[in-house]
């Protein structure tokens, strides 16, 4: 593996919630990301899956430093960026991009498509007006829109076309790292496949390093080289795509995969998890999944399992696959 472009170690993010309780103000802490470590190589796509509230979007925003971490290390191209100020981050921002989920709210309705796509160039003072206009035309064509669309406004476009515009904008500065946060979740099935193919082609063509965040296991399988599964702020399993889908080891990954209805008729065994995910305001002790785990046993309620490598590139945080230890050591 080449040197990673993006790397995080022990990444944590806590949000403080204030709430009035009678006359007192109560402070509570929501731990959205609870100690996450992984690396993404140049040209590689890491898929990040999990259900709502698991911390996957927060992780994406931390990597781009749109949020500041509570603790942990974020490295971009070898440089630690967790403490950098907005000013210091600015030259690095050119090298990063993000595609959002909702193509309806991500585009300013008062700007023309050309203004939207070239805004990052203006902000970073790249090129003159004419060269930016040429760049916009080239970007629009690359994402499957026409030059004539440049002077129109977002409301004139369908959801799929707006997502193409969002992608063009994200690529305007030729970033090396792209975070895609549920980029196809709001789109219809027939349009979703178009956008997925576009993202896949661009990723390969430009050698992009991607973090692809989604709740959809089928979508993640299609675009990712490796996949990480999150549950309540932790990565519970991470492996090369074929391995994770072919031989999932964590009971949560297994349940998640078996729960997805697949477009082939017929009965198949389903692992039904009981209850709802616990609140991230009060995560369970020990393994965070033990309250819903069909295979939980004695140590799970007390000892937090470490993420340990069980096969090359395949790491899992589960006592079924690691000898339980009373004290945590480095894995």
């Amino acid at each position: 593996m080449t040197a990673p472009l993006v790397e995080v170690e022990g990444l944590e993010k806590r949000f403080e919630l204030r709430r009035a309780a009678g006359l007192r103000r109560v402070r509570r802490e929501l731990q959205a990301v609870a100690g996450v470590s992984f690396a993404i190589a140049r040209g590689e796509t890491l898929g990040l899956v999990g259900e709502s509230g698991c911390g996957k979007s927060t992780t994406g925003r931390l990597l781009l430093r749109l949020l500041a971490p509570s603790s942990g290390v974020i490295r971009f191209d070898g440089r630690e960026i967790q403490h950098l100020s907005e000013r210091e981050l600015r030259p690095l921002r050119r090298r990063m991009g993000i595609v959002f989920q909702d193509p309806w709210s991500a585009l300013d309705p008062r700007m023309t498509i050309e203004e939207i796509v070239t805004e990052p160039l203006v902000v970073h003072g790249v090129g003159d007006r004419a060269s930016r206009r040429r760049r916009a035309a080239a970007l629009l064509e690359r994402v499957g829109l026409a030059r004539i669309h440049a002077d129109r406004y977002p409301h004139e476009f369908s959801g799929g076309q707006r997502q193409r515009i969002g992608i063009a904008r994200a690529l305007a500065l030729e970033p090396e790292f792209l975070v895609c946060d549920e980029p196809v979740s709001a789109l219809d099935v027939s349009i979703r496949a178009q956008i997925l193919n576009l993202l896949l082609d661009l990723q390969r063509e430009l050698g992009l390093c991607c973090l692809f965040i989604s709740h959809d296991l089928g979508v993640v399988r299609y675009v990712s080289d490796r996949v990480a599964v999150m549950y309540l702020g932790k990565i519970v399993e991470i492996a090369p795509t074929a391995r994770l889908y072919g031989r999932p080891l964590h009971p949560y990954t297994q349940a998640l995969l078996s729960a997805v209805p697949i477009p082939r008729p017929g009965r198949r065994p389903r692992i039904l998890l009981e209850g709802d995910p616990p609140s991230p305001l009060a995560p369970p002790p020990g393994c965070r999944f033990h309250t819903r785990c069909p295979r939980a046993f004695a140590p799970c309620a007390h000892i937090e399992p470490e993420l340990v490598e069980v096969a090359p590139g395949h790491r899992v945080a589960c006592h079924l696959h690691t000898p339980a230890r009373a004290t945590g050591g480095a894995a």
């Binding site: 027939s190 178009q194 993640v220």
Partner: peptide, 21 residues
């Protein structure tokens, strides 16, 4: 059906329906 990324199968290339709804 050709547009669906199936989590249980390795798919090399989805074949989307062109155009818009």
């Amino acid at each position: 059906l050709a547009s669906l990324p199936d989590p249980r199968a390795e798919i090399v290339r989805l074949e989307p329906i062109p155009g818009n709804v």
